[in-house]
């Protein structure tokens, strides 16, 4: 209740900073530790896939809808996946209604880039007929409670949504009409690689991962690194913080290591839904 304040007091800032310097955080974590993830999939019956993911106090519910449309001319045999994020004013007194702002666009863009460059979505399998009909997937994230680090939470929620997807399968019959086979494309058809995005905050010269709300509001900036099993697929530095080259190298290495651990712990493939 009313814990979210626009101006954070000087003593809270000093308190968090002094403890970070001693490798200690107010919620009991060490600097390189995630808060707990909780994942529920297929929570929205109207959607073709959905996930309700919480990371600490941050909660994002995302859902998948589809349309069949024409492919882009330069990729005639590839489906399309677009992402959108909305920071609902219900989620925090810091969020205001209205058209998407920088923060929500950044959230969607960072996750989108991580997924796009990791060969996560098998776009070629989302093609029904070359040059004519492909699936257009809409992956929309709605932030239900803002407790810091929406990017990592959103990233997991997008992956869980795609894995739990069940999109009706369409084919062209002999008369060149699109018909539905009654079968569904599931996560195995859509998802190939699982890129995890890992965010680090920076206050003064201290770097730590998965900032909670107060830490995020106090941060000078942050860096989000998307990783697959052994590759880096996107990096986004945001805020006014600056990072040294050595720091970036260290963070890239850390990200791969943490990504591996997270991949094992979350075991997202367990959320695959086989729909007859």
């Amino acid at each position: 209740m009313m814990n979210v304040k626009r101006v954070i007091s000087a003593i809270e800032r000093d308190y968090i900073l002094n403890n970070l310097k001693k490798d200690k955080r107010i919620d009991g974590r060490d600097l390189w530790e995630y808060r707990d993830f909780h994942i529920n999939v297929d929570v929205v019956k109207s959607a073709e896939g959905s996930a309700d993911v919480t990371l600490g106090d941050t909660r994002i519910i995302s859902g998948l809808k589809y349309e069949v449309g024409e492919p882009f001319p330069d990729t005639p045999d590839e489906g399309v996946c677009t992402m959108m994020a909305e920071l609902l004013p219900l989620a925090s007194p810091l969020f205001e209604g209205g058209p998407p702002n920088e923060q929500s666009i950044e959230l969607a863009r960072v996750i989108d880039r991580g997924i796009r460059h990791a060969d996560c979505i098998q776009t070629k399998k989302l093609c029904i007929r070359e040059n004519k009909a492909v699936y257009i997937l809409f992956l929309d994230m709605f932030v239900m409670n803002y407790g810091g680090n929406m990017i990592d939470c959103g990233g997991v929620s997008c992956l869980a949504t795609l894995i739990s997807a069940h999109v009706p399968e369409g084919v062209f019959n002999d008369e060149n009409e699109l018909i539905w086979t009654g079968k569904y494309l599931n996560g195995k058809h859509i998802v190939n690689e699982l890129p995890f995005v890992i965010t680090f905050g920076k206050i003064d010269d201290i770097i730590f991962m998965d900032p909670n709300l107060t830490e995020e509001l106090l941060s000078d900036g942050s860096i989000s690194i998307s990783v697959t099993e052994n590759k880096i697929t996107s990096i986004q530095k945001s805020g006014s913080a600056t990072f040294s080259i050595d720091e970036i190298k260290m963070l890239c290495e850390k990200s791969i290591e943490i990504g591996k651990k997270l991949r094992k712990e979350l075991d997202l493939w367990q959320y695959l839904i086989q729909k007859a």
Binding site: S46, I61, F138
Partner: peptide, 16 residues
């Protein structure tokens, strides 16, 4: 402020 999520209905609702 009553709002519907884009994926809450059969045909995707426009975000605005």
């Amino acid at each position: 402020f009553y709002r519907m999520a884009t994926y809450s209905v059969f045909e995707r609702k426009r975000p605005a």
